[in-house]
């Protein structure tokens, strides 16, 4: 930190000023001139929180994608299909059993199993042939998409959040100050989104801990760096591969339930989330969990902000971020060149 300030004094100043301005925008009550030019503070805060929670969802999908890519060099373009399968299964389980929470472990196991089968029967047979694996995953995504369209039809489904997560909750953020009485009005935000954000952070931290503090994590990190050498030193690398693929797939499935709870599930969502994870991983850096979190946050917030303040060009904003990252740092913000 001190080193960074010493080496780049100008950049540090700019970053500190930006962070201060951002904190002021979030915490302070906006003066009337700002409200006149930017709209009410509530809109800004809602867009920001919407972006962060969307980023949390993107992170859950992209984390599995980036982990699988980092370790096995498989660009699994069927990842979006796993997301949608998880969502549909979660819907079925939640409506059949009436328990939203029960859907999570069941979907994690079932979709994880699908991932295990894909890795065991298909991808492991063509190890090292990256392009062929990618083509196979495209074929799988076409087949999955049509099977799901066949079974669940073209209508959109929405998973109902349980009672204790419904309704808004008050956040310690000033939304507005009543001019005549001086009373502070706090921001109210849907509780389920806040809890999903918390859950994503917990999962992210847990993944980081597993990767950096356990033997399994050590094996995975070693495999990302040099899998031949890891295999040569006696590790049964195929079991590590299976575990990572199953975990990544299960995570995508769980993300499907969450996506179905705060948005909706319909054919085409698979490609949408596949593309979101592609962009997140390209921006954040391929194979890096922290990069996926950073990329998801940037893309989620950019998408929501663009949606609120420049509706016609929101997709262009996301794309420009990706293009800028590719132009100046092709390996992604936190990626390493290999």
């Amino acid at each position: 930190m001190d080193n960074f300030i010493k080496r780049y004094p100008l950049w540090s100043l700019i970053i500190i000023l930006l962070v201060a301005a951002f904190l002021w925008l979030v915490l302070a009550s906006w003066p009337p001139e700002l409200v006149a030019s930017w709209g009410r503070k509530q809109i800004f805060l809602n867009a920001l929180l919407g972006g962060i929670t969307l980023g949390a969802l993107y992170f859950l999908v992209a984390a599995g994608f980036t982990l699988i890519f980092g370790l096995m060099r498989i660009v699994n373009l069927a990842h979006g299909s796993l997301f949608l399968i998880g969502g549909y299964l979660g819907y079925e389980i939640a409506t059949a059993s009436g328990s939203w929470l029960l859907a999570f472990p069941v979907v994690f196991i079932v979709v994880g199993l699908i991932g295990l089968l894909m890795q065991f029967f298909i991808f492991s047979k063509m190890e090292g042939e990256e392009l062929r694996q990618t083509l196979v995953s495209i074929g799988l995504s076409i087949v999955f998409a049509d099977l799901m369209l066949w079974w669940w039809g073209g209508q959109s489904y929405s998973i109902l959040a349980p009672q204790f997560l419904q309704g808004p909750m008050e956040l310690p953020l000033v939304s507005n100050v009543n001019a005549s009485t001086g009373a502070v009005i706090w921001l109210r935000y849907p509780a389920v989104r806040i809890w999903i954000l918390v859950a994503a952070i917990v999962i992210g931290v847990a993944m980081w801990l597993v990767l950096n503090r356990t033997t399994l994590g050590m094996l995975i990190r070693a495999g990302v760096d040099d899998r031949e050498m890891l295999a040569a030193s006696g590790v049964r690398i195929h079991i590590v591969f299976l575990a990572v693929f199953g975990f990544g797939a299960g995570l995508a499935g769980v993300a499907g339930i969450i996506g179905g709870t705060f948005q909706s599930l319909s054919p085409g969502e698979d490609t949408r989330f596949l593309l979101a994870s592609l962009v997140v991983v390209i921006v954040g850096g391929m194979g890096s969990i922290v990069g996926a979190a950073l990329g998801a946050l940037i893309i989620g917030v950019a998408e929501q902000m663009g949606f609120v303040y420049a509706p016609t060009y929101s997709i262009v904003l996301t794309f420009l971020i990706m293009a800028a990252v590719l132009a100046f740092r092709p390996q992604g913000l936190l990626g390493t060149r290999r």
Partner: peptide
């Protein structure tokens, strides 16, 4: 089910 045929054929 056209897409299914295409997908399976491609696979």
């Amino acid at each position: 089910r056209f897409k299914l045929i295409i997908g399976i054929g491609f696979l």
